[in-house]
Simulated scan of single mutants.
Amino acid sequence: MTAANQAPKPPTLYIEGPAFWTPTLPGWEAARAAFRGEGTLTDPPAKRPSPQVLAPAERRRAPDTVALALEVAAASMAGAGRNAADVPCVFVSAHGDLSINDYMCSTLATDPTVLSPTRFHNSVHNAAVGYWTIGTGCMAASNSVSAYENSFAAGLLEAAVQCAADHSPVLLVGYDTPTVGALTSVTDSQGLLAVALVIAPERTERTVASFDWSTESGNGNVPAPLSAAAKTLAHINPMAHALSLFESLARVADDDPPAPLDLPLSSTLALRLQLQQVRD
């Protein structure tokens, strides 16, 4: 391909409001400190979050996937200083709600007449983003994405493309939960982990980093965690693919420049990110 007909370089984008939740690092401030070697894991681990976006009755009934996703989504919106009702969103999960899927399959196989309508309602992959848009009154575009083990990179690419195409901020939320029952024979998801951030087309006072991005040939390997804290989460669930990005965000002010990150989209393709600290 000659220089004259090369595809244009994607625009530089900006990250606001990083959010993180797992029982041993329940919040971005705790995670950021641990990833920098300045904090420790929470002991005992935190109980699952209780997102205030939902009404009390809905909060009690919400499955873990919804509770996790809405917790980090709300934290990201607060960190970005944006109105959730106005921001398009991309929610991404490799598996959706595994415990409900196990319940559904077991019940259908044994006594289908007792299947819970509420659990069926929560079994669909876009349940979390549905709760989010209802709870926040968001009428902007919303997507629910899954790409198995490479779901985080696929969701990040989707959000970046939307942001660049529409010149509008996009909320990205990633979450997964443990495998239970018969599904443990086909996938190994060990715990709760959720992440979120806002991708914006322009720098604001809430920007924490900028990044250039492209798709490149890859080998399917996930960047290895660097910190002791991140290493404890390396196999927790498919959202562990986000760890290298969040470690880089925790350290972006220290590295000059940070090393590029290749997040696998498939066994042969990667999303390459080059983070830069924001300088005054």
Rank of each mutant, 00 (worst) to 15 (best):
G130L: 04
L275N: 07
L273R: 09
S214P: 00
Q190M: 09
T22E: 09
I134H: 03
P258L: 07
R82H: 12
V72R: 03
W213H: 00
G96V: 05
A200E: 15
D97I: 12
L261D: 00
R61V: 10
S217R: 15
P201K: 14
P44K: 06
L183P: 00
P223R: 10
A80E: 12
A234Y: 12
S151M: 05
N101A: 08
T207K: 08
R32S: 02
A200M: 12
K231E: 05
L275A: 11
V161Q: 15
S99C: 04
A228M: 01
S116V: 08
E205L: 09
A224N: 08
A67G: 11
R82E: 14
A234V: 08
T107R: 07
S189M: 06
Q162K: 15
P49T: 11
T133L: 08
M239D: 02
V90G: 10
L273E: 05
K47G: 11
Y131S: 06
G191T: 10
T22Y: 02
S50D: 13
L273P: 00
L115P: 01
C138K: 08
A80C: 07
S168A: 14
N221S: 11
D86R: 11
V222G: 00
W213V: 01
T268C: 04
E202F: 05
T24C: 07
Y175C: 01
R206P: 02
E149D: 13
A34V: 02
T12G: 00
V124K: 14
D188M: 07
T24D: 12
A33V: 03
I15A: 13
H167A: 13
V180E: 10
N221A: 14
N83C: 07
M104V: 13
W213L: 04
A73C: 05
I199G: 13
F35K: 00
Y14F: 15
A7H: 09
L271K: 04
L172A: 05
W21A: 02
A62K: 13
T65L: 13
S214C: 09
A196Y: 03
A94I: 05
S142C: 04
D102E: 14
D102C: 01
S214H: 13
P88V: 13
P11F: 11
V145T: 03
L115F: 02
L263R: 09
A57N: 13
A128F: 09
P44I: 07
T207F: 12
R48K: 15
D166G: 06
H241Y: 07
V92C: 11
T113N: 05
A140R: 08
G155W: 10
D166W: 14
P258M: 03
L265H: 10
P56S: 13
C105W: 07
V186D: 10
A34W: 09
S146Q: 06
A154E: 06
D97F: 10
Y148K: 14
A57F: 10
P225L: 05
T177E: 12
Q274F: 05
S168Q: 14
L271F: 03
T215D: 02
D256G: 00
V278W: 01
Q277T: 02
T2P: 00
G39S: 07
A140G: 11
L157R: 15
